[in-house]
Computed example of a mutant assay.
Amino acid sequence: MVSPNLSYPFNKPFLYQFPTGVKLMSKVQFSVIIPLYNKSDCIERALQSVAAQKFQAAEIIVVDDGSTDDSVDKVKALNLENLRVIQQANQGVSSARNNGVKHATSDYVAFLDADDEWSPFFLAKVSKLIRRFPEGGLYATRYQKVLDKQKYIDAKIALTSWDPDGYIMNNYFEIAANGDLPFTASSIVLDKCTFTSLGGFPEGEWMGEDQSLYVQIALNSTIVYTPAIESFYYIGITDSACDKAPPSTICPFAERLFTDIHIGKVADCSAKMAEKYIGAHLCDLAKRNIKHRSYRHALRLLAHPAARAKLLHWGIYSLIAGPMSLISR
């Protein structure tokens, strides 16, 4: 009887080769990017929500975009150990976010606007998503809208999955076309390499910079999502620029997407819903212009060929804007 050779394979190192494209997960670390411009009344609340995280951020980067109030003084007075302040001349929120990412040292960058806040479990929830779906490019949680610091309103998100442990969202355009966006800039974390490869947030555009990046992620990367509410989007502090002066033309991100659809850059399985998403954007702008009695602007928006993709809304707003345009003349 031959005795077994117990020296093999125990006397040789075991080498395992990971499949190509699989991320080796060491400790997940986050750099938190907060763009700041004259937010003296709320920046402390935002930073305190970051400091209260059960899963602590590796660093907090506040990018002061040329504030003229005492916002920066309030940031420094908090004396948070892992916080840095970067100052730049006023160039807009996209520039501030992009600049923050350039200075970030972590593999994952989390964005928080100065007038929003997180639950204490936001980063912990996202870290679990990353470990479960390491292939993701963007990780996001559901959010609530906050009106006048007191009233919490559920966003009307047309989700098709409610798995609390998270899932890969492969129908972003369908969801965004039929309700509120599934996430905001304050409820997302991005893989830094993915963010950089897509060029970050577009700078110098007057509206829709956030949606521009979301569209690029949906077309070129992977969105991982949880319906757990871990972010709070304040809408009652100041009126949005869009409400004050609604755009009279389609936003650049939507025009780019429309062009990509019609030159074949968007997969056939997504093209129809992507056009409906553009239609929802156009009808929303038309509604805002009707609210401000800019009926001819509303009609111009509704004349865009993608607007009819939201046929019911297109019909209602056309019936309102058409006669009112004639009367106003």
Rank of each mutant, 00 (worst) to 15 (best):
residue 26 S to L: 13
residue 295 Y to N: 09
residue 275 E to V: 03
residue 194 T to Y: 07
residue 98 N to R: 09
residue 65 D to K: 06
residue 100 G to V: 00
residue 92 G to Y: 08
residue 289 N to G: 02
residue 260 D to N: 12
residue 267 A to T: 07
residue 267 A to Q: 01
residue 307 A to D: 03
residue 3 S to R: 14
residue 313 H to S: 10
residue 78 L to Q: 14
residue 2 V to A: 15
residue 111 F to T: 01
residue 316 I to M: 08
residue 83 L to I: 05
residue 43 I to E: 05
residue 123 L to V: 09
residue 221 S to Q: 10
residue 278 I to E: 09
residue 258 F to P: 01
residue 45 R to V: 13
residue 159 L to H: 12
residue 329 R to D: 15
residue 219 L to Y: 02
residue 78 L to G: 06
residue 115 D to I: 02
residue 271 A to E: 04
residue 55 F to G: 02
residue 255 E to P: 00
residue 43 I to W: 00
residue 126 V to D: 07
residue 137 G to E: 06
residue 229 I to E: 10
residue 217 I to Q: 10
residue 285 L to E: 01
residue 218 A to N: 08
residue 20 T to C: 09
residue 11 N to V: 06
residue 244 K to C: 09
residue 170 N to P: 07
residue 150 Q to H: 12
residue 325 S to M: 15
residue 317 Y to L: 12
residue 324 M to C: 15
residue 201 F to P: 04
residue 81 E to F: 07
residue 99 N to C: 14
residue 259 T to F: 13
residue 249 T to S: 03
residue 15 L to C: 11
residue 216 Q to N: 13
residue 247 P to Q: 02
residue 10 F to D: 09
residue 239 D to C: 10
residue 108 Y to W: 10
residue 179 G to P: 02
residue 210 D to T: 04
residue 312 L to V: 14
residue 77 A to D: 13
residue 251 C to D: 07
residue 319 L to D: 07
residue 170 N to H: 11
residue 218 A to G: 06
residue 104 A to K: 01
residue 41 D to G: 12
residue 72 V to I: 04
residue 212 S to F: 11
residue 306 A to I: 05
residue 179 G to T: 09
residue 208 G to D: 01
residue 266 V to H: 00
residue 208 G to E: 07
residue 198 L to C: 05
residue 108 Y to L: 12
residue 135 E to H: 05
residue 40 S to Y: 01
residue 216 Q to L: 13
residue 292 H to A: 15
residue 327 I to D: 11
residue 232 F to K: 09
residue 134 P to I: 05
residue 303 A to N: 10
residue 55 F to Y: 14
residue 70 D to N: 13
residue 137 G to V: 06
residue 212 S to K: 04
residue 209 E to L: 02
residue 14 F to W: 08
residue 133 F to N: 11
residue 245 A to G: 04
residue 140 A to G: 06
residue 12 K to R: 14
residue 94 S to I: 06
residue 89 A to Y: 10
residue 271 A to G: 04
residue 159 L to S: 12
residue 208 G to Q: 00
residue 106 S to T: 14
residue 117 E to R: 14
residue 247 P to E: 02
